[in-house]
Design a protein around this nucleic acid. Structure first.
Lengths: 215, 215
DNA sequence: ACCTGAACACCGTTCAAGT
DNA sequence: ACCTGAACACCGTTCAAGT
C-alpha cells in the first residue's frame, strides 16, 4: 500500500495527473494492472489517497510552525505553507480538501487551521466561514496558477514569462476606450508572480477577518 | 459552430463533464465523430469554447446590473451573479477564466469586474490583485462546492443534506480534545448553505479591499 | 491474502477518402 | 468548405483463475 502511494505520487510529481494511469503505475511496481485494485477501489480513490499521503507532510510542516501571539498571523503562516506545497506540486490544487474523511491528514490539517479561529472572538458560524474562506483563497489561487500553462510551458519549449508576455502583447493592442482596466493592469500582469497574487488575496481575507474579530 | 457549442453545453448541463464526449456530441448532431474536428482542434478547445459561450450570458447579466454609488457593492453584485451561474452549472467552476483570450467573453467579463476597481483609490498592482482575489474567491468556493457530491448525490439516491449529515455524524464521534474546532463547527457544517459560505468569503475579501482603498 | 492475463467497453485523435 | 468510416493507441474496470 505504502509503495503504491509512493509510486503514484512520484508519477504525479513527474508529469502531472495525466501521467498517473493504472498501467504506468503497475509497470513501476513491477506487477499487473489489476493488482492495484486490491488496494484501491477506483482511480478516484487512488487520487484521494495519494493526495492525503502528501498532505501528511504538509501537516507536519504546519505543526512545526511556531505559535505567535496573533492567531491571524499564525493562520497566514499555515495558509502560506499549504500554498507552497501546491507550488511544488501543482496537481495538488485540484484534489486537496476534496475528501476530508475521518482519520485523514486532510481532516487534521483542517482542524489545525480551525484551531486558530478558536483564539478569536467569533461565533461558530463565523469560524466555520473563516476557515472555508482561507481554504478557498488557497484553492482559488492554486487553480488560477495550475491551469495557466498550456503544455508548451510544461514542455519547457516556452517559459512562463514568454507565455505571459504573449498575452500582454495581445492585450496592449486592445482599444483602451473599451478595455481601460486591462490597459491599467497589463504591466502588472506581464511577468507577475503567483505567490504575490496569492499573498495579496490572503491578506485581503485576513484583514476582513481581523476586523470581524475586533482583533 | 453555433450548434456544436449549444449541444456541447446541453450535454454538460445534463450530466457534467464526463458526459461530453466526441461520440455523444456527434450523435446529438447527427454526424460522425471526426466532423467536430473541423470546428475545434481538441477537446480542450471544445471545453474552452463551450465555457466562453455560456460566459456570454453571464456577461449580459453582469452588464444589466444597476450601477450604484459604491464600486465595492457593484463588485459584490457582479461576483454574486457569476457565482449564481456556477451554482446552475457546476461544471463551469473548473473551466471559467482558464483562457482569457482576446475577443472572448471571459476577457470582457474580467474587464467589467476590473472597471469597478478603477473607481477606487488603488495602485495598478492593487487593482490587479483585487480582481484576482475576487475571482479566486468565486473559483475557490465553486471548487469546494462542485467536488462535494460523490455521485450518489448526483444520482439522486442520496440528497445533499443526508450526505452532509453522514460526515457530521462521523465528526461528532471524534475526540473533542483532539478536534476542538471540528466539534465547534460541526453543527454549522451540517446542512450548511454553499451560497452563505461563498458570501461570507466574498465579504471578508471585500472588507479588506474597502479598508485598503480607504472607501 | 495477494496477484495475474486477458478481455470489455470505452476514450480522443488521425487520416485517407468522399462531396 | 465540410463531412465520413475506419482505424490507432490508449484508457479504467472486471473477472475467472492462480498462488
Amino acid at each position: 500500500m505504502e509503495s503504491v502511494l509512493a509510486e503514484a505520487v512520484a508519477l504525479l510529481d513527474e508529469a502531472g495527473v495525466p501521467a498517473l494511469t493504472f498501467r504506468a503505475l503497475a509497470q513501476r511496481l513491477g506487477g499487473g494492472v489489476a493488482s492495484i485494485y486490491w488496494y484501491v477501489a477506483s482511480k478516484d480513490e487512488l487520487l484521494d489517497r495519494a493526495t492525503d499521503h502528501v498532505i501528511g507532510t504538509v501537516l507536519a510542516d504546519v505543526e512545526g510552525l511556531p505559535v505567535s501571539g496573533d492567531p491571524i498571523d499564525d493562520l497566514r503562516a499555515m495558509a502560506v505553507t499549504l500554498f507552497d506545497a501546491i507550488v511544488d506540486r501543482p496537481w495538488l490544487g485540484a484534489y486537496f480538501m476534496r475528501n476530508i474523511d475521518v482519520q485523514s491528514n486532510s481532516l487534521r490539517l483542517y482542524e489545525r487551521l480551525g484551531q486558530q479561529t478558536l483564539r478569536l472572538d467569533l461565533s461558530a458560524r463565523q469560524r466555520f466561514h473563516a476557515v472555508s474562506a482561507v481554504v478557498g483563497v488557497v484553492i482559488g489561487s492554486a487553480m488560477d496558477m495550475g491551469q495557466e500553462p498550456p503544455q508548451e510551458v510544461l514542455d519547457g519549449a516556452v517559459d512562463r514569462d514568454e507565455f505571459l508576455g504573449r498575452y500582454a502583447r495581445a492585450w496592449r493592442e486592445l482599444d483602451p476606450g473599451d478595455f481601460p482596466y486591462v490597459h491599467e493592469i497589463v504591466d502588472e500582469f506581464d511577468g507577475h508572480d503567483d505567490v504575490d497574487q496569492f499573498r495579496s488575496a490572503l491578506d485581503l481575507t485576513l484583514t476582513g477577518l481581523r476586523l470581524q474579530a475586533g482583533a
